[in-house]
Write a protein that binds this DNA or RNA. Structure first.
Lengths: 207, 207
DNA sequence: AATCTGAGCGTACACTTGTAAGCTAAAATA
DNA sequence: TATTTTAGCTTACAAGTGTACGCTCAGATT
Protein backbone atom coordinates (compact mmCIF):
# COMPACT_ATOMS: atom_id res chain seq x y z
CA UNK A 1 0.00 0.00 0.00
CA UNK A 2 2.66 2.48 -1.02
CA UNK A 3 -0.14 4.40 -2.64
CA UNK A 4 1.38 5.11 -6.03
CA UNK A 5 -2.04 4.43 -7.45
CA UNK A 6 -4.01 6.51 -4.94
CA UNK A 7 -1.51 9.30 -5.32
CA UNK A 8 -2.00 9.48 -9.06
CA UNK A 9 -5.75 9.43 -8.61
CA UNK A 10 -5.58 12.35 -6.23
CA UNK A 11 -3.45 14.16 -8.75
CA UNK A 12 -5.88 13.89 -11.64
CA UNK A 13 -8.73 14.68 -9.28
CA UNK A 14 -7.00 17.91 -8.45
CA UNK A 15 -6.31 18.44 -12.14
CA UNK A 16 -10.05 18.26 -12.77
CA UNK A 17 -10.74 20.81 -10.05
CA UNK A 18 -8.09 23.15 -11.37
CA UNK A 19 -9.25 22.72 -14.94
CA UNK A 20 -12.73 23.68 -13.85
CA UNK A 21 -11.51 26.74 -11.96
CA UNK A 22 -9.41 27.78 -14.92
CA UNK A 23 -12.42 27.71 -17.17
CA UNK A 24 -14.33 30.09 -14.94
CA UNK A 25 -14.04 33.71 -15.98
CA UNK A 26 -15.98 36.92 -16.31
CA UNK A 27 -18.04 35.33 -19.07
CA UNK A 28 -18.01 31.66 -18.17
CA UNK A 29 -19.85 30.47 -15.11
CA UNK A 30 -19.91 27.04 -13.56
CA UNK A 31 -23.16 26.10 -15.26
CA UNK A 32 -21.54 26.92 -18.60
CA UNK A 33 -18.88 24.30 -18.01
CA UNK A 34 -19.27 20.97 -19.72
CA UNK A 35 -18.01 17.72 -18.37
CA UNK A 36 -16.26 17.07 -21.63
CA UNK A 37 -14.41 20.37 -21.71
CA UNK A 38 -13.27 20.03 -18.14
CA UNK A 39 -12.06 16.50 -18.80
CA UNK A 40 -10.26 17.66 -21.93
CA UNK A 41 -8.42 20.42 -20.07
CA UNK A 42 -7.52 18.00 -17.30
CA UNK A 43 -6.09 15.67 -19.92
CA UNK A 44 -8.38 12.68 -19.46
CA UNK A 45 -11.15 11.07 -21.48
CA UNK A 46 -14.66 12.34 -20.83
CA UNK A 47 -15.82 9.05 -19.39
CA UNK A 48 -12.93 8.91 -16.96
CA UNK A 49 -14.43 11.89 -15.22
CA UNK A 50 -16.82 9.54 -13.46
CA UNK A 51 -13.96 7.78 -11.70
CA UNK A 52 -13.64 10.95 -9.60
CA UNK A 53 -17.04 12.60 -9.37
CA UNK A 54 -20.57 11.33 -9.65
CA UNK A 55 -21.41 14.29 -11.87
CA UNK A 56 -20.61 17.97 -12.41
CA UNK A 57 -22.62 18.94 -9.35
CA UNK A 58 -20.34 16.97 -7.11
CA UNK A 59 -17.32 18.66 -8.68
CA UNK A 60 -18.98 22.02 -8.12
CA UNK A 61 -19.67 21.41 -4.47
CA UNK A 62 -16.06 20.39 -3.99
CA UNK A 63 -15.03 23.63 -5.63
CA UNK A 64 -17.26 25.62 -3.30
CA UNK A 65 -15.57 23.92 -0.37
CA UNK A 66 -12.18 24.82 -1.75
CA UNK A 67 -13.20 28.43 -2.26
CA UNK A 68 -14.54 28.49 1.29
CA UNK A 69 -11.20 27.27 2.51
CA UNK A 70 -9.41 30.09 0.72
CA UNK A 71 -11.86 32.50 2.30
CA UNK A 72 -11.14 31.22 5.78
CA UNK A 73 -7.39 31.46 5.22
CA UNK A 74 -8.01 35.03 4.16
CA UNK A 75 -9.82 35.76 7.38
CA UNK A 76 -6.94 34.46 9.40
CA UNK A 77 -4.58 36.68 7.45
CA UNK A 78 -6.78 39.72 8.07
CA UNK A 79 -6.87 38.95 11.78
CA UNK A 80 -3.10 38.75 11.86
CA UNK A 81 -2.81 42.12 10.16
CA UNK A 82 -5.28 43.66 12.56
CA UNK A 83 -3.51 42.17 15.57
CA UNK A 84 -0.28 43.79 14.45
CA UNK A 85 -1.87 47.18 14.55
CA UNK A 86 -4.08 47.80 11.52
CA UNK A 87 -7.43 49.54 11.46
CA UNK A 88 -10.09 46.84 11.67
CA UNK A 89 -12.34 48.09 8.93
CA UNK A 90 -9.76 49.25 6.42
CA UNK A 91 -7.63 46.15 6.87
CA UNK A 92 -10.60 43.86 6.39
CA UNK A 93 -11.74 45.59 3.24
CA UNK A 94 -8.28 45.76 1.73
CA UNK A 95 -7.65 42.11 2.52
CA UNK A 96 -10.92 41.13 0.93
CA UNK A 97 -10.10 43.10 -2.19
CA UNK A 98 -6.85 41.16 -2.44
CA UNK A 99 -8.90 37.98 -2.36
CA UNK A 100 -10.98 39.27 -5.26
CA UNK A 101 -7.85 39.93 -7.26
CA UNK A 102 -5.79 36.89 -6.35
CA UNK A 103 -8.56 34.32 -6.41
CA UNK A 104 -11.11 35.91 -8.67
CA UNK A 105 -12.40 32.62 -9.97
CA UNK A 106 -12.93 31.27 -6.50
CA UNK A 107 -14.78 34.43 -5.62
CA UNK A 108 -16.81 34.32 -8.82
CA UNK A 109 -17.92 30.81 -7.99
CA UNK A 110 -19.17 31.83 -4.55
CA UNK A 111 -20.72 34.99 -5.92
CA UNK A 112 -22.68 33.31 -8.67
CA UNK A 113 -23.66 30.08 -7.03
CA UNK A 114 -24.93 32.03 -4.05
CA UNK A 115 -27.93 32.82 -6.23
CA UNK A 116 -27.55 29.97 -8.69
CA UNK A 117 -29.95 27.28 -9.79
CA UNK A 118 -28.94 24.53 -7.41
CA UNK A 119 -30.30 24.62 -3.89
CA UNK A 120 -27.38 22.52 -2.69
CA UNK A 121 -24.96 25.08 -4.12
CA UNK A 122 -26.81 27.98 -2.59
CA UNK A 123 -26.81 26.23 0.77
CA UNK A 124 -23.10 25.44 0.53
CA UNK A 125 -22.20 29.04 -0.26
CA UNK A 126 -24.53 30.33 2.44
CA UNK A 127 -22.76 28.06 4.91
CA UNK A 128 -19.35 29.45 3.98
CA UNK A 129 -20.57 33.01 4.30
CA UNK A 130 -22.21 32.22 7.62
CA UNK A 131 -18.84 31.06 8.96
CA UNK A 132 -17.51 34.40 7.97
CA UNK A 133 -20.32 36.26 9.68
CA UNK A 134 -20.16 34.21 12.87
CA UNK A 135 -16.45 34.77 13.27
CA UNK A 136 -16.89 38.48 12.82
CA UNK A 137 -19.86 38.52 15.20
CA UNK A 138 -17.78 36.72 17.79
CA UNK A 139 -15.05 39.30 17.41
CA UNK A 140 -17.48 42.20 17.70
CA UNK A 141 -19.10 40.72 20.78
CA UNK A 142 -15.80 40.32 22.56
CA UNK A 143 -14.21 43.58 21.48
CA UNK A 144 -17.11 46.02 21.51
CA UNK A 145 -19.96 46.59 23.94
CA UNK A 146 -22.95 44.77 22.46
CA UNK A 147 -24.94 41.59 22.93
CA UNK A 148 -24.88 38.51 20.74
CA UNK A 149 -27.89 39.49 18.67
CA UNK A 150 -26.63 42.98 17.98
CA UNK A 151 -23.23 41.60 17.09
CA UNK A 152 -24.71 39.15 14.61
CA UNK A 153 -26.92 41.72 12.91
CA UNK A 154 -23.98 44.05 12.63
CA UNK A 155 -21.64 41.39 11.32
CA UNK A 156 -24.17 40.21 8.76
CA UNK A 157 -24.57 43.72 7.41
CA UNK A 158 -20.83 44.23 7.20
CA UNK A 159 -20.17 40.98 5.41
CA UNK A 160 -23.00 41.63 3.00
CA UNK A 161 -21.65 45.05 2.15
CA UNK A 162 -18.07 43.87 1.68
CA UNK A 163 -19.11 40.87 -0.36
CA UNK A 164 -21.23 43.03 -2.61
CA UNK A 165 -18.51 45.59 -3.03
CA UNK A 166 -16.28 42.73 -4.09
CA UNK A 167 -18.77 41.79 -6.76
CA UNK A 168 -18.78 45.32 -8.11
CA UNK A 169 -15.02 45.52 -7.90
CA UNK A 170 -14.72 42.67 -10.38
CA UNK A 171 -15.88 44.91 -13.19
CA UNK A 172 -13.92 48.06 -12.44
CA UNK A 173 -10.37 49.28 -11.98
CA UNK A 174 -8.26 52.24 -10.98
CA UNK A 175 -9.89 55.28 -9.52
CA UNK A 176 -13.43 53.94 -9.66
CA UNK A 177 -12.20 50.99 -7.68
CA UNK A 178 -10.59 53.22 -5.07
CA UNK A 179 -13.79 55.20 -4.74
CA UNK A 180 -15.74 52.00 -4.28
CA UNK A 181 -13.41 50.88 -1.52
CA UNK A 182 -13.71 54.24 0.17
CA UNK A 183 -17.50 54.10 0.00
CA UNK A 184 -17.73 50.64 1.51
CA UNK A 185 -15.36 51.66 4.29
CA UNK A 186 -17.68 54.50 5.14
CA UNK A 187 -20.64 52.17 5.02
CA UNK A 188 -18.98 49.88 7.55
CA UNK A 189 -18.24 52.86 9.76
CA UNK A 190 -21.87 53.87 9.61
CA UNK A 191 -22.88 50.38 10.69
CA UNK A 192 -20.41 50.33 13.55
CA UNK A 193 -21.29 53.78 14.74
CA UNK A 194 -25.02 53.19 14.42
CA UNK A 195 -24.88 49.93 16.29
CA UNK A 196 -22.80 51.29 19.16
CA UNK A 197 -25.13 54.23 19.33
CA UNK A 198 -28.16 52.01 19.75
CA UNK A 199 -26.32 49.99 22.39
CA UNK A 200 -25.59 53.12 24.41
CA UNK A 201 -29.23 54.14 24.10
CA UNK A 202 -30.46 50.81 25.43
CA UNK A 203 -28.14 51.04 28.39
CA UNK A 204 -29.45 54.52 29.19
CA UNK A 205 -33.00 53.24 28.95
CA UNK A 206 -32.43 50.36 31.30
CA UNK A 207 -30.34 52.39 33.74
CA UNK B 1 -52.35 50.89 -41.84
CA UNK B 2 -54.93 49.62 -39.37
CA UNK B 3 -52.08 47.71 -37.83
CA UNK B 4 -53.67 44.30 -37.55
CA UNK B 5 -50.35 42.89 -38.56
CA UNK B 6 -48.20 44.98 -36.21
CA UNK B 7 -50.61 44.27 -33.39
CA UNK B 8 -50.28 40.53 -33.80
CA UNK B 9 -46.52 40.84 -33.96
CA UNK B 10 -46.45 42.75 -30.70
CA UNK B 11 -48.63 40.06 -29.20
CA UNK B 12 -46.33 37.16 -30.00
CA UNK B 13 -43.35 39.27 -29.00
CA UNK B 14 -44.93 39.66 -25.59
CA UNK B 15 -45.75 35.95 -25.62
CA UNK B 16 -42.05 35.22 -26.04
CA UNK B 17 -41.14 37.49 -23.14
CA UNK B 18 -43.76 35.92 -20.93
CA UNK B 19 -42.77 32.42 -21.94
CA UNK B 20 -39.20 33.23 -20.97
CA UNK B 21 -40.23 34.66 -17.60
CA UNK B 22 -42.41 31.63 -16.94
CA UNK B 23 -39.50 29.32 -17.49
CA UNK B 24 -37.41 31.08 -14.88
CA UNK B 25 -37.62 29.51 -11.45
CA UNK B 26 -35.57 28.60 -8.41
CA UNK B 27 -33.70 26.06 -10.49
CA UNK B 28 -33.81 27.53 -13.98
CA UNK B 29 -31.90 30.67 -14.76
CA UNK B 30 -31.91 32.72 -17.92
CA UNK B 31 -28.77 31.08 -19.25
CA UNK B 32 -30.50 27.72 -18.89
CA UNK B 33 -33.23 28.81 -21.26
CA UNK B 34 -33.03 27.63 -24.83
CA UNK B 35 -34.37 29.51 -27.79
CA UNK B 36 -36.31 26.44 -28.84
CA UNK B 37 -38.00 25.92 -25.49
CA UNK B 38 -38.99 29.55 -25.25
CA UNK B 39 -40.37 29.49 -28.78
CA UNK B 40 -42.24 26.27 -28.03
CA UNK B 41 -43.89 27.73 -24.94
CA UNK B 42 -44.77 30.87 -26.87
CA UNK B 43 -46.40 28.72 -29.52
CA UNK B 44 -44.23 29.53 -32.49
CA UNK B 45 -41.62 27.70 -34.53
CA UNK B 46 -38.01 28.03 -33.31
CA UNK B 47 -36.89 29.92 -36.37
CA UNK B 48 -39.70 32.44 -36.05
CA UNK B 49 -38.03 33.64 -32.89
CA UNK B 50 -35.65 35.66 -35.05
CA UNK B 51 -38.51 37.77 -36.40
CA UNK B 52 -38.62 39.35 -32.94
CA UNK B 53 -35.16 39.21 -31.42
CA UNK B 54 -31.68 39.00 -32.88
CA UNK B 55 -30.82 36.34 -30.33
CA UNK B 56 -31.49 35.26 -26.75
CA UNK B 57 -29.32 38.05 -25.39
CA UNK B 58 -31.58 40.65 -26.91
CA UNK B 59 -34.58 38.95 -25.34
CA UNK B 60 -32.80 38.90 -22.00
CA UNK B 61 -31.95 42.59 -22.06
CA UNK B 62 -35.57 43.34 -22.85
CA UNK B 63 -36.55 41.25 -19.84
CA UNK B 64 -34.14 43.16 -17.61
CA UNK B 65 -35.76 46.39 -18.77
CA UNK B 66 -39.17 45.01 -17.93
CA UNK B 67 -38.03 43.91 -14.49
CA UNK B 68 -36.52 47.34 -13.94
CA UNK B 69 -39.85 48.87 -14.81
CA UNK B 70 -41.59 46.74 -12.21
CA UNK B 71 -38.99 47.82 -9.70
CA UNK B 72 -39.59 51.49 -10.41
CA UNK B 73 -43.34 51.04 -10.07
CA UNK B 74 -42.65 49.42 -6.74
CA UNK B 75 -40.65 52.41 -5.59
CA UNK B 76 -43.50 54.72 -6.44
CA UNK B 77 -45.84 52.54 -4.44
CA UNK B 78 -43.52 52.59 -1.44
CA UNK B 79 -43.26 56.36 -1.64
CA UNK B 80 -47.04 56.63 -1.63
CA UNK B 81 -47.28 54.43 1.44
CA UNK B 82 -44.62 56.44 3.23
CA UNK B 83 -46.30 59.71 2.31
CA UNK B 84 -49.50 58.49 3.87
CA UNK B 85 -47.79 58.00 7.16
CA UNK B 86 -45.74 54.82 7.20
CA UNK B 87 -42.32 54.33 8.74
CA UNK B 88 -39.76 54.85 6.00
CA UNK B 89 -37.59 51.85 6.72
CA UNK B 90 -40.25 49.30 7.58
CA UNK B 91 -42.47 50.32 4.69
CA UNK B 92 -39.61 50.09 2.21
CA UNK B 93 -38.55 46.66 3.37
CA UNK B 94 -42.07 45.28 3.46
CA UNK B 95 -42.81 46.67 0.01
CA UNK B 96 -39.65 45.12 -1.35
CA UNK B 97 -40.55 41.76 0.14
CA UNK B 98 -43.88 41.97 -1.65
CA UNK B 99 -41.95 42.45 -4.89
CA UNK B 100 -39.95 39.32 -4.14
CA UNK B 101 -43.15 37.36 -3.67
CA UNK B 102 -45.28 38.82 -6.44
CA UNK B 103 -42.62 39.07 -9.12
CA UNK B 104 -40.12 36.48 -8.01
CA UNK B 105 -39.02 35.67 -11.53
CA UNK B 106 -38.38 39.30 -12.34
CA UNK B 107 -36.36 39.58 -9.16
CA UNK B 108 -34.50 36.37 -9.87
CA UNK B 109 -33.48 37.70 -13.24
CA UNK B 110 -32.04 40.88 -11.76
CA UNK B 111 -30.43 38.98 -8.93
CA UNK B 112 -28.67 36.46 -11.11
CA UNK B 113 -27.73 38.55 -14.09
CA UNK B 114 -26.25 41.13 -11.77
CA UNK B 115 -23.33 38.74 -11.45
CA UNK B 116 -23.93 36.77 -14.63
CA UNK B 117 -21.70 36.01 -17.57
CA UNK B 118 -22.72 38.85 -19.86
CA UNK B 119 -21.18 42.24 -19.29
CA UNK B 120 -24.13 43.87 -21.04
CA UNK B 121 -26.50 42.15 -18.62
CA UNK B 122 -24.47 43.13 -15.60
CA UNK B 123 -24.38 46.72 -16.81
CA UNK B 124 -28.12 46.74 -17.45
CA UNK B 125 -28.92 45.45 -13.99
CA UNK B 126 -26.43 47.80 -12.39
CA UNK B 127 -28.15 50.67 -14.16
CA UNK B 128 -31.56 49.68 -12.78
CA UNK B 129 -30.19 49.38 -9.27
CA UNK B 130 -28.43 52.71 -9.59
CA UNK B 131 -31.77 54.36 -10.38
CA UNK B 132 -33.03 52.88 -7.17
CA UNK B 133 -30.05 54.17 -5.20
CA UNK B 134 -30.15 57.65 -6.72
CA UNK B 135 -33.81 58.10 -5.93
CA UNK B 136 -33.25 57.04 -2.36
CA UNK B 137 -30.18 59.27 -2.07
CA UNK B 138 -32.19 62.20 -3.35
CA UNK B 139 -34.85 61.51 -0.74
CA UNK B 140 -32.30 61.25 2.06
CA UNK B 141 -30.59 64.44 1.01
CA UNK B 142 -33.83 66.39 1.04
CA UNK B 143 -35.34 64.87 4.17
CA UNK B 144 -32.34 64.40 6.45
CA UNK B 145 -29.36 66.59 7.26
CA UNK B 146 -26.52 65.32 5.10
CA UNK B 147 -24.62 66.21 1.95
CA UNK B 148 -24.90 64.54 -1.44
CA UNK B 149 -21.97 62.22 -0.94
CA UNK B 150 -23.12 61.03 2.45
CA UNK B 151 -26.61 60.49 1.11
CA UNK B 152 -25.33 58.40 -1.77
CA UNK B 153 -23.12 56.23 0.40
CA UNK B 154 -25.96 55.70 2.79
CA UNK B 155 -28.47 54.92 0.06
CA UNK B 156 -26.10 52.48 -1.61
CA UNK B 157 -25.64 50.57 1.61
CA UNK B 158 -29.36 50.43 2.26
CA UNK B 159 -30.23 49.21 -1.21
CA UNK B 160 -27.48 46.61 -1.08
CA UNK B 161 -28.74 45.27 2.23
CA UNK B 162 -32.38 45.15 1.15
CA UNK B 163 -31.54 43.57 -2.19
CA UNK B 164 -29.46 40.93 -0.50
CA UNK B 165 -32.09 40.21 2.08
CA UNK B 166 -34.47 39.71 -0.81
CA UNK B 167 -32.16 37.13 -2.26
CA UNK B 168 -32.07 35.23 1.00
CA UNK B 169 -35.80 35.55 1.41
CA UNK B 170 -36.33 33.58 -1.79
CA UNK B 171 -35.21 30.40 -0.07
CA UNK B 172 -37.01 30.70 3.25
CA UNK B 173 -40.50 31.08 4.68
CA UNK B 174 -42.43 31.68 7.86
CA UNK B 175 -40.63 32.59 11.03
CA UNK B 176 -37.14 32.54 9.52
CA UNK B 177 -38.38 35.00 6.97
CA UNK B 178 -39.80 37.28 9.66
CA UNK B 179 -36.52 37.18 11.51
CA UNK B 180 -34.66 38.06 8.34
CA UNK B 181 -36.91 41.06 7.77
CA UNK B 182 -36.41 42.18 11.35
CA UNK B 183 -32.64 41.90 11.01
CA UNK B 184 -32.47 43.91 7.82
CA UNK B 185 -34.67 46.59 9.37
CA UNK B 186 -32.19 46.90 12.22
CA UNK B 187 -29.34 47.03 9.76
CA UNK B 188 -30.96 49.93 7.97
CA UNK B 189 -31.48 51.67 11.28
CA UNK B 190 -27.82 51.23 12.09
CA UNK B 191 -26.89 52.82 8.79
CA UNK B 192 -29.24 55.73 9.30
CA UNK B 193 -28.15 56.31 12.85
CA UNK B 194 -24.48 55.95 12.07
CA UNK B 195 -24.67 58.32 9.15
CA UNK B 196 -26.57 61.01 11.02
CA UNK B 197 -24.11 60.62 13.85
CA UNK B 198 -21.16 61.28 11.58
CA UNK B 199 -22.97 64.27 10.10
CA UNK B 200 -23.49 65.79 13.54
CA UNK B 201 -19.84 65.22 14.33
CA UNK B 202 -18.69 67.02 11.19
CA UNK B 203 -20.92 69.96 11.96
CA UNK B 204 -19.48 70.20 15.48
CA UNK B 205 -15.98 70.09 14.03
CA UNK B 206 -16.58 72.83 11.53
CA UNK B 207 -18.55 75.03 13.97
C1' DA C 1 3.69 -15.88 -8.44
C1' DA C 2 -1.26 -15.70 -9.21
C1' DT C 3 -5.18 -13.01 -8.79
C1' DC C 4 -7.92 -9.00 -8.31
C1' DT C 5 -8.96 -4.03 -8.71
C1' DG C 6 -9.85 0.06 -10.84
C1' DA C 7 -8.15 4.46 -13.45
C1' DG C 8 -8.31 5.64 -17.90
C1' DC C 9 -9.58 4.71 -22.79
C1' DG C 10 -12.31 4.32 -27.31
C1' DT C 11 -16.52 3.67 -29.41
C1' DA C 12 -21.20 4.48 -29.79
C1' DC C 13 -25.81 6.39 -29.15
C1' DA C 14 -29.65 9.26 -28.41
C1' DC C 15 -30.57 14.07 -27.63
C1' DT C 16 -30.65 18.99 -27.75
C1' DT C 17 -28.96 23.00 -29.45
C1' DG C 18 -28.73 27.25 -32.77
C1' DT C 19 -29.66 28.60 -37.18
C1' DA C 20 -29.50 28.54 -42.55
C1' DA C 21 -32.67 28.26 -46.71
C1' DG C 22 -36.65 28.68 -48.88
C1' DC C 23 -41.84 28.51 -48.93
C1' DT C 24 -46.71 30.24 -47.91
C1' DA C 25 -50.32 33.20 -47.25
C1' DA C 26 -52.22 37.16 -45.35
C1' DA C 27 -51.86 42.01 -44.59
C1' DA C 28 -50.13 46.44 -46.37
C1' DT C 29 -49.30 49.38 -50.09
C1' DA C 30 -49.62 51.49 -54.57
C1' DT D 1 -56.78 45.19 -58.33
C1' DA D 2 -51.88 44.10 -58.68
C1' DT D 3 -47.72 44.16 -56.13
C1' DT D 4 -44.79 44.05 -52.21
C1' DT D 5 -43.80 42.91 -47.55
C1' DT D 6 -43.25 39.87 -43.79
C1' DA D 7 -44.63 36.69 -39.66
C1' DG D 8 -44.49 32.17 -39.28
C1' DC D 9 -43.72 27.54 -41.14
C1' DT D 10 -41.06 23.10 -42.47
C1' DT D 11 -37.03 20.86 -43.42
C1' DA D 12 -32.23 20.16 -42.73
C1' DC D 13 -27.66 20.11 -40.77
C1' DA D 14 -23.52 20.41 -38.07
C1' DA D 15 -21.92 20.72 -33.51
C1' DG D 16 -21.94 19.65 -28.86
C1' DT D 17 -23.84 17.22 -24.87
C1' DG D 18 -24.07 13.32 -21.07
C1' DT D 19 -23.23 8.74 -20.45
C1' DA D 20 -23.59 3.36 -21.23
C1' DC D 21 -20.55 -0.47 -22.33
C1' DG D 22 -16.62 -3.08 -22.45
C1' DC D 23 -11.55 -3.24 -22.83
C1' DT D 24 -6.64 -2.75 -21.11
C1' DC D 25 -2.97 -3.06 -18.11
C1' DA D 26 -0.42 -1.22 -14.13
C1' DG D 27 -0.51 -1.45 -9.36
C1' DA D 28 -2.40 -3.70 -5.05
C1' DT D 29 -3.49 -7.89 -2.60
C1' DT D 30 -3.12 -12.53 -1.29
Amino acid sequence: MSGVRAQQKQKTRQALIEAAFNQLSADHSFSNLSLREVAREAGIAPTSFYRHFKDMNELGLTMVDEAGLTLRQLMRQARRRIASGGSVITTSVVTFMEFIDNSSNQFRLLLRERSGTSKAFRAAVAREIKHFILELAHYLESETPCNASQAYIQAEAMVTLVFNAGAEALDIEGQQRDELVERVIWQLRYITRGASNYVRENKTDSA
